[in-house]
Design a protein around this nucleic acid. Structure first.
Lengths: 345, 345
DNA sequence: CTGAAAGCGCTTACAG
DNA sequence: CTGAAAGCGCTTACAG
C-alpha cells in the first residue's frame, strides 16, 4: 500500500538504490530466486511495500518472452458468453485453473458477426500467449486463427480434421443413451431438434440420435430430425405440426436445456402436458433445467473436468508448441428427472 | 497469415533487414505514423504479412509505458459475473466501448471470498493500467484497492465518501417513484426486501423506500423493511409470516428482479395470486422479469449508458490521474407490467 | 522521406 | 550471497 505523501516508485532501479543493493538482488528477492540473506530480503520487501512498488510487467514480459495471458474468444462475440448460463461453471473452473498456472484471461470486444475476417486486436498486437476458442466456431474462423500459428485450442467445440487441440463432450454416445432409454420406455416416434448453427457438438448429438434410431429399427420417417430452425419459435412451429400429424412424436430430444425449457413452456401454454403427452429430453444440465416445471431430464457434462482439461491443453501447447495434437471427448451422464415418462400408447 | 514452411519472424529488426529499411520506418508503417512512401509502406506490409509478423506487445508497452489493458473485478470473484443476467448487457456495452478506445479487458481467477486481503495478481504484477470494480464491493476492499494508487472506478456501485469515481443508478428516486405509484393504487402496507449484503445500491433503494413511506404518512410498523435475509427462501419465510399477520402487505418491493421472480414463484406455489393477492415490484429490468408469469413490473436502468459512462471514466482517470473525481447517478424509468394491481381492499 | 540511437524495466547467466 | 552487464523488442525525438 502506498503511503501518503511519498511518490510511487516505478522502477526496480530506484528500489535498488534506496535499498543499497543491486537490481539483481531486488529482482531475485521479488521472485523468490537465488539465495538472499533473510534480513536483506526483508529490508528490500519493506522498501517495496513502503513505496508502493509494482513491477512493470512489460519489462518482465519482454525479458521473459511471454505474456502470461491467454485470450478467450467466443462466437460471435465474447460478450455473448455472459448470456449463456451453461458457460458460467466452465468459466469459473477455467479461471481457477489458469490462475493457478499463472495466467490471466483476456477478453476482447471484437465481434465476429460484424468483422468476420478481422482477428481480435489482442492477437494482432501480440498480447496473448495463446487462445481458447470457447464453444462453437465456424470452420473458416478456426482455420484462419490457427493459421496465425499462435497456440490455440477449442474448448467445448471441435474440428476433427484440423490440427487443433480440443476437448468437448461425447454427445454422440449421450444421444444414443437417450434413445436407448426412450425406447425402453416404449417410445418409437422420437424427434430431435437443434438450431441451424454451424455447430459440431450439435452435429455429434444429431449423429448419435440417427445412429440409435437405426440401431433400434425405428422409422426414420417417424423420427424427424429438425435442424433448420433459427430460434425456439420456429422449432415449436415444426413440433406442433408434427404433434398434430397422424404419427405424432411421443418424445423430443432438444439439443440443449435452454431449448428444452422453452419448448416445454410453449407446449404447456398450448395445452400439452409434459411428460404425459410428450416427453422432453435436454442436454447440458444447465441451472434452468432444474428450475423448470417439470424438471427436465438431461445430460450432465462434467464442466469442471472440461475446463480443467482445456486449461491444461492450452498451457501444454504454449509450453510445447510441437506437441502432438490432443483430442478429448469427455463421457457424459444421463440425468433422469420429470420431463420423461412411458410413451403414450 | 503465416505461410507454410517459412519460420515466423518475431522482431521488427528482422523485418527491417528483409525489407531493406530501418526499424524506425517499419515501426512508423505499422503504426501509420510519419510520412512513408506508399510503395515502401506496401512493401513492408507485404513482408510482415508473408512472415506472419506479430509485433511484441511487451516491447511496445515497455516503451510506451502503458498496457492498454484494464482489469475487471467483481465481488467475490469475477467468475460470478457469468451467473448474473443483469451484467450481460453491461459487459457487452463495456467491451464495445473499451475496444473502441483501444483497451482490452483482463479477468482474474482471484476469489475475494477466499483471499480477502490479497489483490489480484494482475494488479500486483502491473499488467493493467486501471481497474473497474463492477457491482457491489465491501468498503474495505475498495479502500485497499484504491490505496494501491492505480486508476480505479466503481461501475454500478459506489462509496460516496471515498475518493473513487463511480457511476451507478439512482435507486433512491426509483424507490420513491415505486412507492408513489403504489400509493396511487391504494396500497398502504408495502414491504421492502433486500439481501443482507454490504451493497450501497441496495441501501439507496431502501433509503428511498423509507423516505417515501414517511412522505406518504404510511405506517412504518406496517411497511416492513426486510434487510437481514441471506437468500430467497429466508426472504419468503419472512413474507409469509407477514402475509399471515393481521396487517398483511399488499405490495412487495424486491431489491432486484431475480429476487422478485423467485418470490412470485414461491407465492404462487403457496396458492397466492400475483397481483390479485399481492403486488410485486422488481428492479433492473432483467431478461427474467419479462419471462416470468405474470411479467414483473420493474425499474429500467440504462445499462448501455452505465457502461459507456464507466468506460469513459476509467479512461479519463488513466489519462489524467489528477482529474477531480467524477460521480454519476443515472436516472431510471419505471416499467409497468402485470405483477402490480390496485390494492386488495 | 528515412535512419541511427537511446532507453523503457526487467531477468538471468555469469563472475566473484 | 551479491552485483555488473547484456539484451529482450519496441517507439520516438532528432538529424539529415
Amino acid at each position: 500500500m502506498l503511503q501518503n505523501g511519498s511518490k510511487r516508485i516505478t522502477s526496480i532501479k530506484e528500489i535498488a538504490k534506496l535499498a543499497g543493493y543491486s537490481i539483481a538482488t531486488v529482482s531475485n528477492t521479488l521472485n523468490d530466486k537465488g539465495r538472499i540473506r533473510p534480513e536483506v530480503r526483508q529490508h528490500i520487501l519493506d522498501i517495496c511495500q513502503k513505496h508502493g512498488y509494482i513491477p512493470n510487467s512489460a519489462g518482465r514480459n519482454l525479458r521473459r518472452q511471454k505474456n502470461e495471458t491467454i485470450g478467450l474468444m467466443f462466437y460471435p462475440s465474447s460478450s455473448a458468453i455472459f448470456r449463456n448460463v451453461y458457460y458460467a461453471e466452465i468459466m469459473e473452473a477455467l479461471e481457477f485453473e489458469l490462475e493457478r498456472a499463472g495466467y490471466d484471461l483476456l477478453l476482447s470486444g471484437h465481434d465476429s458477426s460484424i468483422e468476420p475476417n478481422v482477428s481480435p486486436r489482442f492477437l494482432r498486437q501480440g498480447k496473448v500467449d495463446g487462445i481458447i476458442l470457447l464453444g462453437r466456431f465456424p470452420r473458416k474462423r478456426v482455420v484462419d486463427l490457427n493459421d496465425y500459428g499462435i497456440p490455440l485450442i477449442q474448448l467445448d467445440g471441435f474440428r476433427e480434421l484440423l490440427k487443433v487441440d480440443y476437448v468437448t463432450s461425447d454427445g454422440y454416445s449421450a444421444s444414443e443413451q437417450i434413445v436407448d432409454h426412450l425406447v425402453k420406455l416404449k417410445h418409437r416416434r422420437i424427434a430431435f431438434v437443434a438450431y441451424n448453427h454451424e455447430d459440431t457438438n450439435a452435429n455429434q448429438r444429431e449423429a448419435g440420435f440417427l445412429a440409435a434410431v437405426g440401431k433400434h429399427h425405428l422409422s426414420f420417417a417417424e423420427c424427424k430430425n429438425i435442424r433448420d430452425i433459427g430460434n425456439t419459435t420456429e422449432a415449436y412451429e415444426m413440433i406442433k405440426l408434427m404433434l398434430e400429424s397422424e404419427t405424432p412424436p411421443t418424445a423430443i430430444v432438444a439439443v440443449n436445456d435452454t431449448l428444452a425449457v422453452e419448448l416445454v413452456d410453449l407446449l404447456q401454454k398450448d395445452g400439452y402436458s409434459v411428460p404425459q403427452d410428450v416427453s422432453v429430453f435436454g442436454f447440458n444440465d444447465d441451472a434452468d433445467s432444474k428450475k423448470s416445471n417439470p424438471q427436465i431430464s438431461t445430460v450432465r457434462i462434467d464442466k469442471i473436468k472440461l475446463a480443467q482439461t482445456g486449461a491444461k491443453m492450452i498451457i501444454d501447447r504454449i509450453e510445447s508448441p510441437d506437441l502432438p495434437h490432443q483430442k478429448a471427448s469427455l463421457p457424459t451422464e444421463l440425468i433422469h428427472r420429470d420431463s420423461v415418462a412411458i410413451a403414450k400408447s
